[in-house]
């Protein structure tokens, strides 16, 4: 638990900073930080209990996708504004470095292992966003359909 908190608090400040660097409109920064924080929390919990950073990235990206779709609907904004700062935490920046470090140490086995994990984490982020995007589309189509059916009844 302390581990999760110690990882969570700095990340929230990092998301805030990223929101400023990418110039999120001032009145949308709080929502943006909340979306990013929820995504990162999901990553931490999934990573901690499933002990798999790849699954963590997948669920984290799903969470970011879901929350930012909701946020963009509530605030009538482009979804990109909430997705970009939120997803950046999940990008395996450290893993990129460890891959390179293993290469310098001439440890090809290590490099291949970490490198594949890096690619899989990046792929998991992509999959998370894709799956969530598709699910939201289907869900909204279903909701609007049920509404029209009700109206007819």
């Amino acid at each position: 638990m302390t581990y999760i908190i110690s990882m969570f608090v700095p990340a929230v400040f990092a998301i805030l900073g990223l929101a400023i660097i990418f110039r999120v409109p001032v009145n949308r920064i709080p929502a943006c930080v909340v979306v990013g924080a929820l995504g990162w929390l999901t990553y931490l919990v999934a990573d901690h209990y499933l002990s798999s950073p790849v699954m963590g990235c997948f669920f984290g990206a799903c969470m970011v996708g879901l929350c930012s779709a909701e946020a963009s609907r509530i605030f009538k904004e482009a979804m990109t504004i909430f997705v970009i700062p939120g997803i950046l935490c999940l990008v395996p920046g450290a893993k990129i470095f460890y891959t390179m470090e293993a290469l310098i140490r001439n440890d090809i086995e290590d490099m291949a292992e970490i490198g594949v994990q890096t690619l899989m984490m990046a792929g998991a982020i992509a999959m998370g966003l894709l799956v969530m995007g598709a699910l939201i589309k289907v869900f909204r189509a279903l909701v609007s359909k049920t509404v029209t059916v009700k109206d007819k009844l």
């Binding site: 990418f22 997705v83 997803i87 950046l88 990008v91 920046g93 450290a94 982020i125 894709l130 995007g133």
Partner: peptide, 22 residues
């Protein structure tokens, strides 16, 4: 080093690429 790398990771490119595919 890893902290500084996070400033330049291609998060925008990855996100946009996924959404373009979608």
């Amino acid at each position: 080093i890893t902290g500084c790398i996070m400033l330049f990771v291609p998060g925008v490119a990855i996100t946009n690429s996924i959404r373009d595919f979608l």
